[in-house]
Design a protein around this nucleic acid. Structure first.
Ligand SMILES: [Mn+2]
Ligand SMILES: [Mn+2]
Ligand SMILES: [Zn+2]
Ligand SMILES: [Zn+2]
Lengths: 143, 143
DNA sequence: AGCAATAATTGGAATTATTCTAATTCGAAG
DNA sequence: CTTCGAATTAGAATAATTCCAATTATTGCT
């Protein structure tokens, strides 16, 4: 059994014919493997250019289609910073995002042990949260 | 002295010639008063149509310009939900946003007494947060 | 294997929120 | 009143994303 959490990320060929209920076509495998390969939160365009290296015929529309399929099946997370182009993240564990304003780099940020955000919010009685996004921007301590 | 936090929101005429270092032109007063008038988090287009009622000659470009000026001077908050059009919020107190998926309505959500988000995140040493956005989506308990 | 039905991919056009541009108008200061 | 920088305006441009209609690939039979 292939562990998708393994340290070295899978090549497209190593991905099974179906993941989490999503049929893995050649293009979806390519796109997924690109997203898994680096934790740098690429945009759709980044994914497109990286995919083109191995699969020169893939189209941008397909990259968008594949990303949408992967996101809607919960295999990839879509990450938004204000009005910037969406980015894609293979880290499915509970985390949020910090963008270094100096470099633009996006870092995963985890919650401290046992913290559940909803516990700290005055939400209306009986609210069911289906989606949560926390985005931070700032500078990383320089000295 | 005019309180901008008063229960009944100011008409454009009631706004002073300068707020928080921003010169208040006729259009900026109109746009600001529209944003202050209702806590429904209007889009730029919403602000445009509402402004047109009192000021039929205002242009959409000006509404964008005014909103940008108000946001950059900290008089209005810009609120983003995923890839949806930006919305604008006159509530300057520390809060985040919940969108009811049923109706699309956006509600302000406050943090529980004395909670500081950054305390619950594993941020790299010395990180300076300049901007923070928390967006929730879900359903409001029906029964 | 052959065939029909279904789903995915593709290139290009369309959409749409937002930004840009260049011309005009405004308004504060002298 | 004139000047001059700033703001407003209409309309064009931009850019991320979505849509469309045609082609291609895959699946599930027989
Ligand atoms: Mn999201
Ligand atoms: Mn913001
Ligand atoms: Zn991430
Ligand atoms: Zn708000």
């Amino acid at each position: 059994m292939i562990s998708l959490e393994a340290n070295s990320s899978p090549t497209p060929e190593e991905l099974p014919p179906e993941i989490g209920g999503l049929r893995m076509t050649k293009q979806r495998r390519e796109v997924f493997s690109v997203v898994l390969a680096e934790r740098d939160h690429p945009t759709a365009n980044d994914v497109f250019s990286r995919s083109q290296k191995r699969m020169p015929t893939i189209s941008l529309a397909t990259v968008y289609n594949c990303l949408e399929a992967l996101v809607s099946h919960g295999l990839v997370r879509q990450v938004n910073f204000e009005r910037e182009p969406s980015r894609y993240c293979p880290n499915l564990s509970d985390h949020c995002h910090f963008q270094d304003e100096k470099t633009g780099t996006i870092h995963d940020v985890v919650f401290k042990e046992g913290v559940n955000l909803a516990d700290f919010l005055e939400l209306p009685q009986g609210t069911e949260i289906s989606h949560l996004e926390i985005s931070l921007k700032g500078r990383i301590g320089s000295h």
